[in-house]
Design a protein around this nucleic acid. Structure first.
Length: 115
DNA sequence: ATTCTGACAGCAA
DNA sequence: TTTGCTGCCAGAA
């Protein structure tokens, strides 16, 4: 029995939240990695959208641990203050320079590979 | 209904 | 290497 359209979206969003919540402390991943893990590899933008509305979720979503594939903090303007995301990450021991994560490759956490 | 936009990513020039 | 266009799927106007 197919679910209602609204339900489907909730499922996709929920999956995004689930994966995001499993990102280990001090690690980060990319929108594309999550999208691929969820099956729709070319829907990275939807991951971003899901995180954008993650405020409606009761649980805390560590959305600051999700950046684009270049380790660029493209979503920092969505944390109220544009320095919040950067601060949260540095709080976890991640070094940032010019909105870019240093040692991005080493800190990278691939849900498809590690989950 | 149509058009534009977006917290992306891949590929062509 | 950098820039620009395209595919992707939902939402807003």
């Amino acid at each position: 029995m197919p679910r209602l359209k609204q339900k489907v979206h909730d499922d996709f969003f929920s999956k995004v939240y689930e994966v995001t919540k499993r990102i280990p402390f001090g690690r980060i991943t990319s929108y594309g990695a999550i999208a691929r893990y969820l099956g729709s590899g070319r829907s990275a933008r939807m991951v971003g959208w899901a995180l954008n509305v993650s405020h409606s979720n009761l649980e805390f979503i560590p959305a600051h641990r999700v950046v684009n594939r270049n380790g660029l903090l493209t979503g920092k303007h969505h944390f109220g203050n544009s320095s919040t995301m950067e601060q949260l990450l540095e709080n976890e021991g991640i070094v940032i320079e010019n909105d870019r994560i240093i040692n991005f490759k080493e800190k990278f956490w691939d849900p498809g590979k590690e989950l």
